[in-house]
Design a protein around this nucleic acid. Structure first.
Length: 640
RNA sequence: GCUCUGAUAGCUCAGUGGUAGAGCGCGUCCUUGGUAAGGACGAGGUCGCGGGUUCAAUCCCCGCUCAGAGCUCCA
């Protein structure tokens, strides 16, 4: 039992003495009426708590107001309850699932007979406004399991969750107005605190995230303390739509899809030019330390049985009917690993050769679920910048450092910001626990040695080993997984890989799987969105568009273009329509440079250079000087 | 794969139980332009595919395919 008085330490070091069982609300009130009014929640022992939760022991406390970022999830969680309150008013039979705060807002899952329509969402939003105006207090109560069972007798989803609690565990419920929810909290003091919110979309979602369970109807929304923040967020969503690579891919004529091959891109001439440029860049960076090889696309099932994919991964593989056997006993490769292992094993390797790095840019096929496909970021046919490193145990740390620098250097070349995640053993895996212990420890140690910050993602590893994933953030803050470094002790066993050691005896190498772009398809999608289609000159599908002012100057314009093309510049002369029309078109296609040729330029061998987005500002320069500018930009891969 | 929504001209979209329309793009002609749409005329569509209801279906119903928002999965 706590003593009668407790000592509360404030962030500035002040110590308050209050009766045991006082709440953070009491603390705020004793500091001042202004804070009491502004307080939304508090942090005690590193945990966010509601203002009404009693404090039983001496502790440090920090009161949260709208200024503290930790209060935003509290507001959003309350917004989810307010949403549920509104839904229950309008659809009384709705079962309630979970309704948490998420990074961008909140959602709530409902079990209803008929899915929600956009009109329903508008009605819920209106009803939420009424709940907010009613300013219902959020009341927290502790109940025992038996009482909770009674309270949620009509809510089977809540009852299921309830049964997962230990009998002795503290169960809390929150009530606002008529709405009662099984909930750990915390919440803002009352519904009136929710001022700026919006419901965004409805969608199906499996109960407990399990595809074997029933599908609930999820409503997504977002909420902020300040109107400006909400507006900024909504504007950012609009910006994301504007930059969507699927939209820009069509507008800039880079790639397209056709129902005859779902999940596989048709690259247009412009898109192909960019794809090839990226490929050249990758090859150039790999030239020094990697050995590029090409391996078959089609393999017998024996290979996949040996690799373990036949058992764990077959539903994702495109099986091919073998005409002689009449069986589907061949498959297009979904990854390059086994073929690299086969090649490695075909020769005898000395410890002196290691590490050996085989790199392959071949096309891969994975039969993804139809619903998973999305633009270029999730496709069935793609090319990885794949590599497998064969190395000695004692080389792991050095190799991880090398690969990490190599990967991050690639992202930096495009001005992409990245973050690192360490992913550990998943539930579905091959290999013994001892192997996994060893692999995780080795990889983590190597990652630590790089000195770079990282997050841990438990259970997110590959089925054969732990991995380091590299995520990049695009210019509007979304994160995508691209690169990876995966440590594999399993494949060397399965493929009986060896090297001859200093002792003239065979030893097992370790395998590291590495990708940088992830896939060319996904990487290009990110580049499109990152640059909003305005690619740096070296990468742009068309680098210069030459515009003669009238037919008279076409010959001169073509000469100027030929000079650039001879130096490897991607250039096109556009002769149709009016000058204004062609300038508008070139700007729409986000071509980095326009070179305009009229009487003045034709007579003195110059071009009038107009930069993308620069409006009427232009610079007249000699053809040679313009070529120098371009070649320098392209050579240095300037980000413009 | 699951839930919901959609599919009409090359693109973006409107529209109707009696076999369709706009803007852009495309073609031809006129215009020969100095920095973000010059003008006129014209050609394009079994209204995603297959069934059903109906005198009649692009429209209503069912199935399928593809796409979008999510879920699950993932480079």
């Amino acid at each position: 039992m706590a003593s009668d008085a407790i000592q509360i330490t404030l962030p500035d070091g002040t110590v308050l003495t209050l009766p045991a069982g006082s709440t953070p609300g009491d603390v705020a009130a004793s500091i001042g009426p202004g804070l009491a009014k502004a307080a939304l929640a508090a942090v005690i022992d590193g945990r966010t708590v509601g203002l009404g939760e009693p404090i039983e022991h001496d502790t440090a406390i920090r009161i949260l107001t709208a200024r503290d970022p930790e209060s935003l999830p509290v507001l959003r969680h309350s917004a989810a309850h307010i949403l549920a309150t509104a839904v229950r008013e309008l659809r009384p039979g709705a079962g309630i699932g979970f309704g948490p705060a998420i990074d961008e807002g909140f959602y709530y899952d409902f079990d209803v007979d008929a899915p929600f329509t956009p009109d329903d969402l508008a009605a819920f939003e209106q009803k939420m406004t009424e709940v907010v105006e009613a300013d219902q207090p959020f009341e927290r109560r502790r109940v025992d399991k038996a009482e909770a069972r009674k309270l949620f007798a009509d809510d089977p989803l809540k009852l299921e969750r309830l049964e997962e609690f230990d009998d002795a565990e503290v169960i809390t419920v929150y009530q606002n107005g008529p709405f009662l929810d099984l909930c750990r909290g915390p919440h803002v003091p009352s519904t009136g605190h929710l001022k700026h919110f919006k419901l965004l979309s409805g969608a199906g979602a499996y109960w407990r995230g399990d595809e074997k369970r029933q599908m609930l109807q999820r409503i997504y929304g977002t909420a902020f303390h300040r109107k400006d923040d909400l507006d900024t967020h909504l504007h950012r969503l609009e910006e994301a739509r504007r930059r969507d690579h699927r939209r820009l891919g069509r507008e800039l004529d880079l790639f397209q899809f056709h129902p005859v091959s779902p999940g596989a891109a048709f690259w247009t001439p412009r898109g192909t030019a960019m794809y090839n440029t990226l490929e050249r860049f990758v090859r150039e960076r790999q030239a020094e330390s990697f050995l590029e090889v090409k391996t078959p696309l089609l393999y017998t099932k024996e290979l996949w049985e040996q690799s373990g994919h036949w058992g764990k991964y077959r539903e994702n593989m495109f099986l091919v009917l073998d005409a002689e056997s009449g069986e589907h006993d061949m498959s297009l490769k979904p990854m390059n690993c086994p073929s690299h292992h086969i090649y490695y094993a075909s020769q005898t390797h000395s410890y002196r050769e290691l590490p050996i790095r085989y790199a392959t840019l071949d096309v891969l096929h994975r039969n993804e679920l139809s619903g998973a496909l999305s633009g270029l970021t999730r496709v069935r046919q793609f090319a990885q910048d794949d590599c497998h490193v064969y190395l000695r145990e004692d080389q792991i740390a050095q190799e991880v450092r090398f690969l990490t620098d190599f990967i991050l250097g690639h992202y930096e070349a495009f001005g992409l910001e990245s973050s690192i995640k360490f992913a550990t053993r998943p539930e579905q895996r091959i290999g013994s626990d001892a192997q996994w212990d060893h692999a995780e420890a080795a990889l983590r140690e190597a990652l630590e040695a790089t000195g770079r910050p990282y997050e841990v993602e438990p259970g997110d590893g590959a089925f054969y080993g732990p991995k380091i994933d590299f995520h990049v953030t695009d210019s509007i803050g979304r994160s995508w997984q691209l690169g990876t470094i995966q440590l594999d002790y399993n494949a060397p066993e399965r493929f009986d890989l060896n090297y001859v050691g200093q002792d003239n005896a065979p030893h097992r190498p370790v395998v590291i799987h590495r990708a940088v772009c992830g896939s060319f398809e996904r990487f290009i999608a990110i580049l499109i969105e990152h640059f909003a289609g305005a690619f740096p000159t070296w990468l742009a599908p068309e680098q210069v568009r030459v515009l003669p002012i009238s037919e008279q100057w076409e010959t001169s314009a073509r000469e100027a273009a030929a000079g650039l093309a001879a130096a490897g510049v991607r250039v096109h002369v556009e002769e149709r329509e009016t000058l204004n029309y062609r300038i508008r078109e070139a700007e729409s296609l986000k071509i980095p440079y326009m070179a305009i040729v009229g009487e003045r330029e034709a007579s003195d061998g110059t071009v009038a250079v107009r930069r993308r987005g620069a409006g009427r500002k232009q610079e007249v320069m000699s053809r040679g000087a313009f070529l120098d500018v371009l070649t320098e930009k392209i050579r240095t891969r300037a980000l413009d």
